[in-house]
Design a protein around this nucleic acid. Structure first.
Length: 642
RNA sequence: GCCGGAGUAGCUCAGUGGUAGAGCAAUUCACUCGUAAUGAAUAGGCCAGGGGUUCGACUCCCCUCUCCGGCUCCA
């Protein structure tokens, strides 16, 4: 039997394909199975038969699909190790995920760090034993018998959809040595084909993701096609952790979280404050350009307002408690700005001629987030939304949504975010049913806007807000966690709820549509991700300090001050390092603060009115640059993107 | 909120029951220096907070707070 690769090159036993591999690959009902073929002496690949013929498709172990198989197999080995080491424990599910896999277990005691080392050790032994993975097909009844001691497996089998299983109502499992686990496969031919893996960490996780059900112990691990790939991955993670916005916030002196303030509450230091001012200025400038009006609203509002808005019904536990004097209606700190903007709309009778009415505000809001979810400034209890609410007529929705999406894309582009994920979330089950027509209009309009801007998006069915469908944009942080930032929500409910109306061209009242839009989302979250995105080395227009000037000796201080004056006149943010350290040391400090430009001035420069100029990322300076040329060049580099 | 881990100087971290340590940062002095750490000295601590065990607790136990990693949640 030969194995033929897609390029028709014939592989046979004499290049390392074993009889077992071939049998496993072509056995009846094994179309999904992978087999290993040795393509050359150095590379072990996977192949699987193309169903209707004798040809084989090669899956490189390092390819996405190969890694998926590898990690799935490693997850089985992990479960095997845990069941070996912790008798009486049982296991739930263990899928591959991005960069690794996890497996959930129910055990008597949560895993300790020492337990994880033992598990790693036991897995290493199982890999060394090179146990073959054997595919087993059985009926659901047989499966219930085989897995009778494992309640989560029983639950899975009982809920299995026969149509999902190849070959009809058959449950498949994979067995190696005495260990057997439900699995659709495919798997590696044997445990010995796992080149490199590592047990990473454990944590709690709810069975089926439901916090009312059992809390299991999840162990995360990773597996790679080679030891060096594993090392590279671990190195990447280590490097990414250095970009953590909490760490850089301290190192660059941007913000802090004083314990005296309370969890989830930050203070912004002068450098962070400058960054924030720049971001806010840019926000205001773009709002103005896109035709938004600025409004302002207070941080608190009467209890009644939050009852009218529906927030107290649905989200009271996320709102700070009532503040109340005796005989007083009581006030709440705002968790969002919408009701205030609605009140502005309501402040007078509106005509269709006033629409669309776009109201924007950088509104500080406070939400009592659960203690376990707070994460630096990415998930805080006090934050600022670059919020806006647009009121418009039905026939204006299309144009308005396109404008809002254009705004969002411009905003993201200006900050260098081109790697984001867009989602269109459609009506949830709890959607108000008598608004059927408005939901239809709204969902189509959002999709049309995305398509008009050629934005690739994913539909998230049922993920919309209770008041309307939405577009969300997620951006990844340094270690790949996704955070929701921009959002455009088409509200089909609130205007009716508040009795909003306008007089249309036929002199009859009509209910407007309302578009909620946040371009950054939370400014704090956005800036946190911005810090991670640039690893603190901001482009010049964003850098709190754009230029640091280093006099070689203190006799150059006066000239340094002249240079500073000239740069400041051009609008640049400049610092002179007057410390008595060596030039090298001052350079090091400027670079570790990631200042975009460093200017060194010494005797030659004083004499010739020049500077030494070094931009962040360059190894050396350019000496003797005429001051005028250097300052003009820096001013140009500091230009805003749009 | 749940599961686990952690909290020692501004920062990064040593310190396993017997007088609280280092490096960096800070301050002072000397050095006046041309591209990633000049030298010396000084100062800096309710060892997160509270309770307990003990002759004695940073260390062991309990509670609370905060942070970290996940889970759940995010109008």
């Amino acid at each position: 039997m030969d194995l033929r690769l897609p390029d028709q090159k014939v592989l046979s036993h004499d290049v390392g394909v074993t009889g077992l591999d071939v049998a496993r690959a072509i056995g009846p009902g094994l179309a999904r199975a992978a087999v290993a073929v040795k393509v050359n002496d150095h590379q072990m690949d996977l192949a699987r038969p193309i169903e209707d013929g004798g040809d084989f498709e090669v899956i490189t172990l390092g390819s996405p699909e190969g890694l998926h198989i590898l990690r799935h197999s490693t997850a089985h080995v992990m479960a095997q190790a845990v069941l070996d080491l912790f008798p009486g424990s049982t296991f739930a599910i263990g899928p591959p995920i991005e960069d690794g896999f996890y497996y959930d277990f129910e055990v008597n005691e949560p895993f300790t760090p020492e337990d994880l080392e033992r598990i790693q050790q036991r897995m290493t032994e199982i890999v060394a034993e090179d146990q073959p993975f054997e595919r087993v097909a059985m009926s659901p009844e047989e499966a219930l018998d085989v897995f009778s001691d494992h309640k989560f497996k029983v639950e899975i089998i009982e809920n299995v959809d026969p149509g999902e299983v190849s070959g009809g109502d058959v449950v498949t499992a994979y067995r190696n040595n005495g260990f057997i686990d439900l699995c659709r496969g495919p798997h590696l031919p044997s445990t010995g084909r796992i080149p490199a893996f590592k047990v990473l960490r454990s944590s709690g996780a709810y069975w089926r993701g439901d916090q009312d059900r059992e809390q299991l112990q999840r162990i995360y691990g990773t597996a790679w096609a080679s030891k060096s790939d594993l090392d590279d991955y671990l190195h990447r993670v280590e490097e990414a952790e250095k970009r953590d916005h909490r760490r850089l916030g301290t190192e660059l002196d941007l913000y802090s979280f004083p314990p005296q303030l309370g969890s989830g509450l930050a203070v912004w230091h002068p450098k962070g404050g400058m960054l924030r001012k720049i971001v806010e200025d840019h926000s205001r400038q773009l709002h103005e350009r896109f035709g938004f009006d600025f409004v302002f609203s207070p941080h608190i509002g009467k209890e009644d307002l939050w009852e009218a808005s529906g927030h107290l019904d649905f989200y009271a536990e996320h709102m700070y408690p009532i503040m109340q004097y005796e005989g007083d209606p009581g006030y709440r700190v705002k968790p969002m700005n919408c009701p205030f903007h609605v009140l502005i709309y309501q402040s007078s009778q509106r005509s269709y001629r006033e629409l669309p009415m776009r109201l924007g505000e950088l509104g500080g809001v406070y939400r009592y987030e659960q203690s376990g979810v707070i994460h630096g400034i990415l998930r805080a209890r006090g934050f600022t939304q670059d919020d806006s609410h647009t009121f418009c007529a039905e026939d204006q929705i299309q144009d308005e949504l396109k404008l809002h999406l254009d705004f969002v894309l411009t905003w993201l582009g200006d900050f260098g975010f081109d790697d984001f994920e867009a989602e269109l979330s459609t009506r949830p089950e709890k959607a108000i049913l008598d608004e059927e027509h408005r939901w239809d209009v709204a969902e189509k309009a959002l999709a049309d806007a995305l398509e008009a801007h050629d934005v690739v998006y994913r539909v998230a069915p049922g993920e919309g807000a209770f008041y309307g469908p939405k577009i969300d944009i997620h951006i990844k942080d340094a270690i790949g966690r996704r955070w929701q930032c921009s959002t455009i929500q088409l509200d089909v409910n609130t205007p009716r709820r508040f009795g909003l109306e306008y007089i249309d061209s036929t002199n009859s009242p009509e209910v407007p549509y309302m578009i909620h839009c946040a371009k950054a989302g939370s400014l704090e979250r956005f800036m946190g991700i911005l810090v991670e995105h640039y690893a603190g080395a901001f482009p010049m227009w964003l850098a709190p300090v754009q230029v640091s000037i280093i006099p070689v000796a203190d006799r150059h201080d006066e000239y340094a001050d002249q240079v500073k004056g000239r740069l400041r006149d051009l609008g640049l943010r400049v610092e002179v390092d007057l410390s008595t350290e060596t030039v090298s040391d001052k350079i090091r400090r400027a670079l570790s603060q990631k200042h975009p430009a460093v200017i060194v001035v010494g005797d030659d420069d004083v004499e010739n009115t020049t500077v030494g100029l070094r931009l962040y990322g360059e190894d050396r300076d350019t000496r003797g640059v005429p001051l005028i040329e250097a300052s003009n060049r820096l001013a140009e580099l500091a230009q805003r993107p749009s």
